[in-house]
């Protein structure tokens, strides 16, 4: 493996993993924009990830797509076998497993171990080398169960029935996970969404998820908007305090993200309610997972690398930082 300007490169496979520049052969772990760029030649990814890329970019962007179901093996180069294992991050997210000359390397991509009904749960794959993310790699990050945070939200909706609860979420993954978690908590009201969230939510529906009744805010007539009092509206984080939110009746800004554990981050967003909902592994899970894979070497791609490196070394694991560039921590959610 090598770190090149285009991204992480696997020499014997002649392929990049999640390259951030167009390359001839790419393995794409999941559909978030900073991992799945357009313009590659051949793209190895799960069918769901390819669908997401097709929705986000043009059909042509993934013309060279090779769909690999989880656990389906393919020999991508002489003596190099690739297969994908579930990563539990978002719909279609995968770890890339490369077997070569009797040894194995697993590239986790972004992953989490907390429950998420929108995707297949993370699977521990025993390996020699584990390449991990470190987005939330500090002991201050412990993500609570999502049910706990949904409960917090619903309590607020009940106590402040005049306020329209406006939740800032990432369009891919977070939005749909939250919608489903609300349904699981027994919330039956119509959910309202910002236009930027529509296409991907529809894609999730095509792929078999049921979010109950939901509507686009823009489809409501001006006179109907007052009906959004006491209702839940989802929007991209950038729309929370933008002109768009002025049309809503007394909006209460809510932010759903793993960063919301830090008070200053909540203030920065001007959020009045902070939901700690993360699609990444928290501190304990990052360490637990690295240990469970049995890897003797752990390479850390992006995030709070120093802390994870330090903690893994203390556990006798050879850990090192790869210093990959081009991962935007705020958007990595």
């Amino acid at each position: 493996m090598e770190v090149r300007p285009e991204g992480l490169y696997c020499v014997p496979a002649d392929a990049f993993v999640d390259p951030h520049r167009p390359v001839a052969r790419a393995i794409v772990t999941h559909g978030h924009a900073d991992h799945a760029r357009s313009g590659h030649g051949t793209v190895f990814a799960t069918p769901e990830t390819l669908s997401i890329m097709r929705t986000r970019y043009a059909e042509a962007a993934v013309a060279g797509g090779v769909a690999l179901a989880y656990h389906q093996k393919v020999e991508i180069a002489d003596g190099v076998t690739l297969w994908l294992a579930p990563a539990g991050h978002i719909l279609g997210s995968a770890q890339a497993v490369l077997d070569y000359g009797g040894s194995r390397i697993v590239i986790s991509g972004d992953y989490k171990r907390h429950s998420d009904p929108t995707c297949t749960p993370f699977e521990v794959v025993p390996t020699d080398v584990f390449v991990t993310e470190a987005t939330f790699a500090l002991p201050v990050f412990t993500h609570p169960p999502i049910a706990h945070e949904i409960d917090k939200l619903l309590r607020s909706v009940r106590t402040l029935p005049d306020r329209c609860h406006l939740i800032g979420v990432y369009a891919l993954g977070k939005c749909q996970r939250l919608m489903l978690a609300l349904r699981e908590a027994g919330y039956e009201e119509t959910l309202y969404v910002h236009g930027a969230l529509v296409k991907l939510t529809q894609l999730y529906e095509e792929l078999g998820h049921d979010f109950g009744r939901w509507e686009q805010v823009a489809d409501l007539a001006q006179g109907e908007r007052d009906a959004l009092r006491g209702k839940i509206v989802l929007c991209p984080p950038s729309a929370l305090a933008d002109r768009w939110s002025r049309r809503l009746p007394e909006p209460l800004p809510v932010m759903a993200s793993g960063w919301m554990q830090i008070r200053a981050r909540v203030r920065q967003r001007r959020a009045e309610l902070a939901l700690i909902v993360s699609d990444h592994a928290d501190w304990n899970d990052l360490i637990r997972t690295a240990v469970e894979t049995g890897a003797s070497d752990v390479w850390i791609t992006h995030g709070r690398v120093e802390a994870l490196e330090h903690a893994l070394k203390q556990r006798g694991i050879r850990a090192k930082a790869l210093n990959l560039i081009g991962r935007d921590e705020e958007d990595a959610q």
């Binding site: 500090l138 002991p139 120093e306 330090h310 203390q314």
Partner: peptide, 16 residues
Amino acid sequence: RMDEELFALSYDYVGE
């Protein structure tokens, strides 16, 4: 109760 370096990194990040 906590590794010194991990505390220092955490404190740096949180700032308080």
